[in-house]
């Protein structure tokens, strides 16, 4: 399979354009006739990752790459970082603002949803400097959620 790379900018607190990168990626994968279940898993992870930057992060970038047997979504932002990653991974834990919560975000489900739907997820954070989340999807994937 041919390799492909694309990137998208994500702006912090920009709820107006939030989700556009994910919609773009979804249509791209559809046009490539990918498995619908796999596309949905990628869309969930990409959207949650995008919203994490919009809600919590500084400005960031989403890198999409497809090579051989895998698709990788890497999201890097120069936000405040995550103090305690294992705590942030716990379902229900959230540090979202009241504004975000009123909009129906901040349920503490973003990172758990990402973990559930990606074949592999790596999160690194330097508090005060940046966060990098990398999610890998195998094209012949055994996962069947959602």
């Amino acid at each position: 399979m041919a390799s492909l790379k694309k990137f998208f900018f994500i702006k912090a607190r920009d709820f107006v354009h939030a989700g556009e990168a994910s919609i773009h990626i979804q249509s791209l994968l559809k046009s490539m006739h990918w498995d619908p279940v796999l596309i949905r898993r990628v869309a969930i992870c990409s959207y949650e990752g995008e919203m994490n930057v919009v809600i919590h992060g500084g400005d960031g970038v989403l890198n999409l790459s497809i090579e051989n047997d895998r698709l990788i979504i890497e999201i890097i932002d120069d936000g405040p970082g995550i103090q305690d990653i294992s705590l942030a991974m716990q379902p229900g834990y959230s540090t979202a603002s009241d504004e975000a919560r009123e909009m129906g975000f901040g349920a503490g489900m973003g990172l758990p949803n990402m973990k559930k739907n990606a074949d592999d997820i790596q999160i690194e954070s330097e508090p005060g400097i940046r966060t990098r989340a990398s999610m890998t999807f195998l094209l012949e994937s055994p996962k069947e959620t959602p």
Binding site: P36, R40, I44, Y47, E48, M51, M103, G104, F105, A107, M109, G110, N113, K116, P146
Partner: peptide, 12 residues
């Protein structure tokens, strides 16, 4: 009304 819940579970 929680968008993450809907994103994860709503049927196509």
């Amino acid at each position: 009304d929680l968008l993450s819940d809907v994103m994860a579970k709503a049927p196509v």
